[in-house]
Design a protein around this nucleic acid. Structure first.
Length: 688
DNA sequence: TCAATCCGTATC
DNA sequence: ATACGGATTGAC
């Protein structure tokens, strides 16, 4: 088509600055395809502009630009420079190149588009997560290192001895082969379940060392700052402190941008960090890795709510990079990767697991008040109290894991504590008020005729979850023993050897030098009766995270779990078999039509708007809607009550169609300026 | 018949 | 948001 670059100013139409100044288009590839930062869903696509000759040199793919869009100056990224445009109408000029720094690489742009599509979100939203805000001073101050220096760095990192890495991985079936494939630059994919007490940061660092040996780069994501610190120090040992950068939310804007630039400019080929680092622009990516993918922190709380695991897997697929999903436990998502043969299972043989694991004993909540006055004070079962006492007497630290209070109240069988599920859609039941009939959280159906599938019981009770057990209470049971606490407010990374009672909430357990002599897992009902799909998997994940810090049974390490030994997650803990539990959970999810076997999305907003969106959406065949149900969270006063509908497709393969149908419907509503904001969420948190 | 205004739609 | 085109309305 013919480019109309200099439209005659029409009567009544204000002349643009471009035509007034008579700007000329750049001589070659004058068209810029821009991704503009506009929030409207129906405008989620590239727009073509003309690059004026004076911006020719600066307007490079990936740079930040400003352009006039619908009469306003908006920010955007230059995706590409091309020779001609498909656009029928006249094209406007790019107004300004904010900086010629190419911050959005083609690979990351493609990844962001794929993630937006997967989560029914907009590219602009994903780019906000992927590219940190510009910091002009940081950009000017850090010039790219010269090429000579970079070569020197590469020489040093590729001269690592291969022997140092293979040995520890040799404890795992398929481990050595996985590392060897990375060294050859092959896109090997593994789900690694680490041994009890494993020095996992060292193992991840070895995988990275193998990858950079092949001349490729790596991206590693961990849940939180504490894990990141451990990984950083392992990496500093394995590959050197100056060949990687760490990205996390606690960094200030200048430092964050400085480190981001080190990666995007190719000064470093390895980036580690928390979830946003999954998007880091690493050149020649050879490996993506995630530690403990079951941790909630991997889920981004901002739209479109992508999960770091999904981002990394997508990235591995798009860039032909290897993938490592490593954890002490196993999520159903990781299990799905194994069962679909997308990734190779890398686990240790059973006898190696047994040799390293502590002895695990389940105990009922039997407090023998007559015999153990001190135990009764702390509401500790007798065996738990005696185990702790003996361990402390032996001079070793004791870890006590106590769940945080405040989980969503759920409903379970009075007789056997099995969480109650809806008879129609198998969603979790909940009680909205004390006298109400329990109703399904997903589809809203009241459950008047409950019958427990496990024991046939017909009565329900609201589980009282969360714990009021305090460190002082526990300390009183062990007079004279130092009590240390680690929790939300102050998290300890490590504790020294020697007798001490360490009380921690899940995820905040300090590592003990030499290992804990004993680990007590208390108030397990709080974890097991959570009203979400992951309750079982999550309970085991948290128990294993604490239990893995204990010494092996051969060195006296013991774990006491206060729970019914017949329950599946407790069994899995006793046998140290997270893969077995994950397989069982996945089979159950398949049977019930739950994610990740099926795919679900939630649509939340004012009732009329939710109904409107669903009426517009051309849902894929077989899609089922559940609800609407009123949204539980407190409403800001003055606003309409909100509702939520879940949409489920039984087959994961219909997932892209589901996301695109909801995105398209949201686009139509956005174009029409329909009343009410509707939030669409794929893989919604409510299900976790 | 024409111009002022309204409304829907595209925004490069 | 704002800008445009087509439809609509109202006065001549």
């Amino acid at each position: 088509m013919v480019l109309e670059l200099f439209p005659e100013p029409r009567a009544g139409r204000r002349r643009t600055p471009a035509s007034r100044t008579g700007r000329e288009p750049a001589a070659s590839r004058p068209i810029a395809r821009l991704a503009l930062d506009v929030p409207l869903v129906h405008l989620d696509r590239p727009f073509d502009y003309v690059v004026p000759a004076e911006l020719d040199a600066a307007a490079v793919p990936g740079c930040r630009v400003r352009a006039r869009f619908a009469g306003r100056l908006v920010d955007g990224y230059l995706l590409d420079r091309v020779a001609s445009s498909e656009h029928e109408g006249t094209l406007a000029f790019v107004e300004k190149v904010v900086s010629p720094e190419p911050v959005l690489t083609p690979e990351v742009a493609r990844l962001a588009r794929a993630v937006a599509d997967r989560y029914a979100g907009t590219l602009a939203d994903v780019l906000r997560l992927a590219v940190p805000p510009r910091h002009a001073r940081a950009e000017a101050a850090t010039r790219p290192v010269d090429l000579g220096l970079r070569d020197a760095v590469d020489d040093r990192t590729t001269s690592l001895s291969p022997r140092s890495t293979a040995e520890e991985w040799g404890a795992y079936q398929g481990g050595v082969e996985f590392l060897a494939a990375l060294r050859r630059g092959e896109p090997a994919r593994a789900v690694l379940t680490v041994l009890p007490g494993e020095d996992w940061p060292a193992r991840l660092a070895e995988a990275v060392a193998s990858t950079i040996h092949s001349g490729r780069g790596a991206v590693l994501v961990v849940p939180d700052a504490r894990d990141l610190e451990r990984l950083e120090s392992a990496l500093a040992t394995a590959i050197g402190a100056d060949v990687f950068v760490a990205l996390h939310n606690a960094l200030g804007p200048a430092e964050r941008y400085r480190r981001f630039l080190r990666a995007s400019r190719g000064d470093v080929r390895v980036v580690v960090g928390t979830r946003a680092a999954a998007f880091a622009p690493v050149r020649g990516l050879g490996l993506v890795a995630i530690w403990d993918d079951g941790d909630d922190l991997h889920a981004e709380p901002r739209a479109p709510y992508p999960h770091a695991l999904q981002v990394l897997l997508t990235r591995s697929q798009l860039e032909g990079a290897g993938a490592l999903v490593a954890a002490g436990s196993r999520s159903v998502e990781a299990q799905l990767l194994v069962q679909t043969r997308w990734a190779q299972e890398v686990t240790a043989p059973r006898d190696a697991v047994r040799a390293r694991a502590p002895a695990v004993t389940p105990v009922g909540d039997d407090i023998d008040r007559a015999r153990d006055e001190a135990a009764a004070t702390a509401r500790l079962p007798s065996l738990a109290w005696r185990t702790a006492r003996d361990t402390l007497a032996g001079g070793a630290p004791v870890l006590v894991q106590v769940p945080r209070r405040g989980y969503v109240p759920s409903v379970s069988c009075v007789e056997c504590h099995t969480p109650a599920r809806c008879g129609r859609c198998a969603g979790p039941l909940e009680l909205r008020s004390a006298h109400a009939v329990a109703a399904c959280r997903w589809c809203g159906r009241p459950s008047a005729d409950f019958a427990c599938p496990r024991c046939g019981g017909r009565r329900l009770r609201a589980s009282i979850v969360g714990s009021g057990r305090t460190a002082e209470e526990l300390g009183r049971a062990f007079p004279g023993v130092a009590v240390r606490t680690s929790g939300r407010d102050s998290i300890l990374s490590t504790v020294e050897e020697g007798p001490a009672l360490v009380v921690a909430t899940p995820g905040a357990e300090p590592v003990a030098a030499g290992g804990y002599g004993a680990v007590l897992l208390l108030d397990t009902w709080a974890l097991l009766t959570r009203a979400d799909l992951r309750a079982t998997e999550e309970a085991l994940r948290r128990w294993l995270a604490a239990a893995t810090l204990a010494r092996p049974a051969s060195s006296g390490g013991r774990v006491v779990v206060v729970a019914d030994g017949a329950l599946a997650p407790v069994q899995a803990l006793l046998r140290w078999d997270p893969a077995g539990l994950a397989a069982r959970e996945l089979a159950e999810r398949r049977e019930l039509g739950f994610p990740p076997a099926a795919r679900m999305a939630s649509v939340t907003g004012p009732a009329a708007a939710v109904a409107d969106l669903l009426a517009l959406a051309e849902l894929p065949e077989g899609a089922v809607t559940l609800g609407p149900v009123p949204v539980g969270r407190p409403q800001p006063s003055e606003s309409e009550p909100e509702e939520r509908v879940l949409v489920r497709v039984a087959n994961r393969s219909a997932g892209p169609a589901l996301a695109s149908a909801l995105h398209a419907a949201a686009g139509v509503r956005s174009a029409r300026k329909s009343e009410g904001t509707v939030r669409v969420q794929v893989d919604p948190r409510e299900l976790w």
